[in-house]
Design a binder for these strands. Structure first.
Length: 879
RNA sequence: GGGCGGAUAGCUCAGCUGGGAGAGCAUCGGCCUUACAAGCCGGGGGUCGCAGGUUCAAGCCCUGUUCCGCCCACCA
């Protein structure tokens, strides 16, 4: 039965084998027919292009902790895995590949290109899935889904067509964010604002009647080639006289009206604003209000077009230089001031966004947002931590139409057809053959925003629009775990679409975790070169150590600054667990299945009681998503209570006579405590716990399928905990003296302990050997107070006085100094407590239990002070 | 421009509804005690960013303030 374990834990040997065991035994599988209460999590689908980074590692570790906890706790769990097709990101990757082959997507054509992307996906798309397995994720892999799967595509089409039928999807010639590099429109959310050091150019526009000129200020002088008006504020006295007049646009022959619009801020720039409806969102709105013509000056690559006259063909930045030079040469440029302002950039390729008027598909999400707001307001969906609720409401309440069309090829093609003969637009669930008028149909070439399909993830992955068993059993899902960076992109959309199409929340809890940062607090990024690869961490320290670190760092509302030092520390913890198991396995011969209660020693009862409250703590903190507290409670228990105290205390009994009652009890207790500890730890550190479990006698099946320990009131034993408290303080008191006097354990000492009463004497006598073994003393004499030994070091702990006769061994001055220091500390504490008790306000207003507690402290402290004083006097007299 | 978070030991951070300042690492001292030196035992170290206020009592609540960080935003 006794199997020797290797001396140190070797994760690389264990992890692969254990994971295979789990997967092959079907332990990850969800069962829609089960009677157990369901608990479901849908994975935030990583991009197929992705490689596991720290964000994934944290995100998925948390999900795995939850799902393993719930699985052990008797729930019918589903962790639904899958990946996202990541439209623009994936298209970019494959385009780069084509570029290396000296070709591009236009040359090979749409169909071939899409084939290429699928091939790419087949070859590389599984990478991140394997990395998640490495992390130990217990997803139901047989149910893996991809946003471009047939089933999910059907869901996408159903949703799009329904929204169209409800009048919520429409096509509009509107100003949108255009990425001149990706050649596609982007949603507002997909634009990142960054501060750019630019310049404000003051350009003079002469009035056509020769009565002077108006000067406008602009950061983008090149857009003047698309100007169709100049606007001033109607209340601005300086310009009232110009309203209705006209100016001549420099560098062109265009005549522009001077109009009045509220939007113009008289205090900014010159108070006169050039209006470029086709290339500025504000100007676009003003253009609509005043029915201004719209002149596009750029093409889709950000080059000047035929409307730009002499500048045609120039890149927008080159055009800016030329326009400025020409304005200056012709005397229209009054001045240039440095000006820093936020400019939109593409979130996929960082190219400067070009606001561009174009024909796009939009979803009017306002009515959907209303439901999504309600669901959180009424508490049907909880956001944890709740600080994010405000951010969520803010965004939902100010939501604007969602531009969902993308001018790329990789994605769900919009199911719309245009008839060139009659102009009809058909949006349909089935591909139409011909138009009603008999005309030929042309399908929309645009695809949908990636987030459109991921927004359906909680129900599309479960089979919707079919009413599958999985959908019925697991929707609404239980918890969504995500970083705040995709709160709007993803969570908000799932809330809206889930509520709209299922009339039910997609998940009851949203747990928002922090971002993983580098040790210096900065974001990990390739350009900063401070990226830590999770795979390397796992190679170096093992997956469990890594997972435990992430859990320990996952305090709510605070970013994770990952430190290698911490990982190393938790690697040591894993090894500590391993060695404790090794010890237990060496001491299990003849371990009974049960032991009568009366066999249990004080230490046995104590550790079982501590284990019990640790189980309660673990459950409480897991239920509240306080993973850092779970980790620290388990760390504290496992290392400092189980290993440091219990195992040491149990050694004499374990090493005792064969068949001895105490030995049987200790063997049973040490095994029980280890087993339950492993179960409590399993959700965080699955590999090492499973490996140890497999070697423990009487441990059936897999630990991942074992019951998560429940606190049992019978095992709660306050009396034993109090008794152990005293024993521990006595031991620590003695060790303390040893430490202070640099007495190595090999130096034999004796100890005399004065107890306040008979029961205490009895307690210490009964635990004499424990004190001897753990404090390295050869003799313990407990008695009621009597004659104090001469030349002894003394300590006061838990109401008892400890003396260690050290004739000739100690320096009395040193001992006096030590006692004086201790006395100082106690006096200080006592003074604080007495001040409190001397305060009438405190006695009158503080709750009774608090007053009683402080009184108890006074009692204890003054007793301690008294004893310290008398000992100090005695030592001083001896000098 | 609006909103949010942080500031506690040398470092990284806990401290939940106000009631005796904690952990890990680092540091100092002692130990190869037959599970573990990736270990064991002990010690030192904090006016809880600053200034006010509420309270019998403030790291925690309120007001102001400084310094970091983040998010949102169509002032050219």
């Amino acid at each position: 039965m006794t199997m020797e374990l290797p001396k140190g834990y070797e994760p690389e040997d264990v992890e692969q084998r254990i994971y295979k065991l789990w997967e092959e035994s079907g332990s990850f599988k969800a069962d829609p027919a089960s009677d157990a209460p369901p608990y479901a999590i849908v994975i935030p689908p990583p991009n197929v292009t992705g490689a596991l980074h720290m964000g994934h590692a944290l995100n998925n570790t948390i999900q795995d902790i939850l799902i393993r906890y719930k699985r052990m706790d008797g729930f019918n769990t589903l962790w639904q895995p899958g990946t996202d097709h990541a439209g623009i990101a994936t298209q970019n990757v494959v385009e780069r590949q084509l570029a290396q082959e000296n070709t591009d997507r236009h040359r090979i054509g749409r169909e071939k290109f899409i084939e290429r992307v699928w091939e790419w996906r087949k070859e590389y798309g599984g990478k991140i899935i394997n990395q998640l397995k490495r992390l130990g994720c217990s997803c139901d892999w047989g149910r893996e889904r991809f946003t471009m799967d047939q089933g999910l595509s059907k869901a996408v089409r159903e949703v799009f067509v329904s929204l169209y039928e409800q009048g919520l999807v429409y096509r509009d010639d509107y100003i949108t964010n255009w990425c001149p590099r990706c050649h596609t429109a982007l949603a507002d959310l997909e634009v990142e604002h960054r501060d750019v050091a630019g310049a404000l150019h003051y350009v003079r526009y002469p009035l056509t009647d020769g009565s002077g000129s108006l000067t406008v200020a602009t950061t983008r002088p090149e857009t003047m080639l698309g100007d169709t008006a100049v606007a001033v504020n109607p209340e601005d006295e300086r310009f009232k006289k110009f309203i209705g007049k006209e100016v001549r646009l420099p560098l062109t022959d265009r005549i522009l009206p001077i109009i009045a619009d509220e939007h113009v801020d008289p205090s900014f720039g010159t108070g006169a604003l050039k209006i470029t409806p086709a290339h500025d969102p504000n100007d676009f709105e003003i253009g609509l209000r005043h029915k201004l013509p719209s002149v596009k000056a750029f093409d889709q690559s950000g080059r000047m077009n035929e409307n730009a006259g002499a500048y045609q063909g120039l890149d927008r930045f080159e055009a800016r230089k030329r326009v400025i030079a020409d304005l200056e040469a012709q005397g229209f440029l009054e001045k240039v001031e440095p000006y820093s302002h936020a400019v939109g950039h593409c979130y996929r390729c960082s190219t400067m966004i070009e606001p561009l008027q174009s024909l796009q598909w939009f979803v009017d999400v306002k009515p959907l947002a209303q439901k999504a707001i309600q669901a959180v307001r009424t508490g049907k969906t909880r956001i944890i931590p709740p600080t994010w609720e405000k951010v969520y409401y803010e965004w939902m309440e100010n939501i604007r139409p969602w531009c969902v069309s993308r001018q790329i090829w990789w994605g769900h093609r919009i199911p719309a057809w245009y008839c060139d003969s009659c102009g009809k637009v058909i949006v349909s669930r089935e591909d139409p053959e011909k138009c009603d008028c008999g005309g030929e149909l042309r399908q929309e070439t645009d695809v949908l925003d990636t987030w459109f399909s991921s927004g359906l993830w909680p129900f599309s992955t479960l089979g919707w629009p079919e009413e599958t068993d999985f959908l019925k059993t697991f929707y609404p899902t239980s918890c969504l775990v995500t970083g705040f960076d995709i709160l709007f992109f993803w969570v908000a959309r799932m809330m809206m679409l889930g509520l709209w199409f299922r009339d039910e929340i997609p998940f009851s809890d949203v747990y928002i975790h922090a971002l993983v940062r580098a040790e210096d607090g900065r974001k990990m990024s390739k350009s900063l070169g401070n990226v830590i690869d999770p795979l390397e961490v796992m190679d170096q320290y093992g997956t469990d150590a890594f997972r435990f670190t992430l859990a320990a760092f996952a305090a709510q509302g605070r970013d994770v600054k990952l430190s290698m030092k911490r990982i190393e520390g938790y690697r040591n913890f894993i090894n500590k667990i391993w060695n404790s198991a090794r010890f237990v396995l060496m001491n299990l011969e003849g371990v009974p299945e049960e032991v009568p209660e009366e066999y249990l020693s004080l230490a046995d009862k104590w550790i079982l009681s501590r284990l019990n409250s640790t189980a309660a703590q673990a459950r409480e903190t897991l239920d509240g998503y306080n993973f850092d507290r779970t980790a620290s409670a388990l760390y504290q228990f496992m290392w400092h209570e189980f290993c440091d105290w219990y195992i040491e205390l149990a050694k004499p009994a374990l090493y005792g006579k064969k068949g001895d009652k105490a030995q049987a009890a200790a063997r049973w207790t040490v095994l029980t405590a280890l087993k339950d500890s492993l179960k409590l730890l399993h959700p965080i550190i699955p590999f090492v716990t499973e490996e140890i479990w497999s070697r423990l006698p009487g441990a059936e099946g897999q630990i991942m399928m074992a019951d998560y320990p429940k606190p049992d009131p019978v095992r709660e034993d306050r009396e034993s905990e109090q008794a152990m408290d005293l024993i521990q303080s006595v031991i620590v008191g003695i060790r303390n003296i040893r430490g202070e006097f640099n007495l190595p354990p090999t130096k034999p000492v004796k100890t005399i302990i004065f107890c306040p009463d008979r029961p205490t004497v009895g307690l210490l006598e009964a635990n004499q050997s424990a004190i001897q073994d753990l404090a390295w003393v050869e003799e313990v004499k407990a008695s009621l107070p009597g004659d104090k030994p001469k030349s002894a070091a003394a300590a006061v702990a838990g109401g008892v006085e400890i003396f260690i006769p050290l004739a000739g061994l100690i320096d009395l001055d040193q001992e006096a100094a030590r006692l004086a220091k201790e006395l100082d500390k106690v006096s200080g504490e006592l003074a604080k407590v007495e001040k409190k008790l001397g305060n009438a306000g405190f006695l009158g207003k503080a709750p009774e239990d608090v007053v009683a507690k402080v009184k108890g402290q006074r009692q204890e402290l003054s007793l301690k002070k008294e004893k310290l004083e008398s000992n100090l006097t005695r030592v001083r007299e001896m000098v």
